[in-house]
Design a protein around this nucleic acid. Structure first.
Lengths: 64, 64
DNA sequence: ACCTAAAGTAAAACACACTTTACATTAAGA
DNA sequence: TCTTAATGTAAAGTGTGTTTTACTTTAGGT
């Protein structure tokens, strides 16, 4: 799964730590997701989408 | 997280086993998700949404 | 060149997602 | 009522998601 987290974060001028705090997860979790180390859980994906006010499919995509 | 899997499955007249096969997961996984025992991974949520040709948010909702 | 914020990374620990096997319960048709 | 398909459930095992702690690397400002 690919994701646009880094771009969305840049658009808002947030650091990984900023985003982590808003999402109530650790900074390492954000880093790992951005680096494609693993995918977020579904609840976290929802939280991310809600924060950026977009739908999940516009952040995450099923491709390699 | 709530989900409409059971309803969607009923609309298509599929058993849990049918759906499991189409999604390439075990029947127990479908049962557990329907019963709210746990949420699917994000990749599985995508697969489910793709199968039913709807977006993730119309199947899963963030409520209690 | 130095300092600092931000990002990257890694290991250990814990919780959750998913599998297989196996058995119990429910529901509905004959 | 008997059978059988469908659903529910449980235990043990594996892999993934997330945390904490801690250290390294990168990049920008001065």
């Amino acid at each position: 799964m690919k994701n646009r987290l880094k771009v969305l974060r840049a658009e808002h001028d947030w650091t990984q730590a900023d985003l982590a705090e808003k999402l109530e997860v650790s900074r390492q979790t954000i880093n790992a997701i951005e680096k494609g180390k693993y995918d977020p859980s579904l609840p976290l994906a929802f939280k991310i989408a809600r924060l950026f006010a977009v739908n999940i499919e516009s952040i995450f995509s099923d491709e390699a």
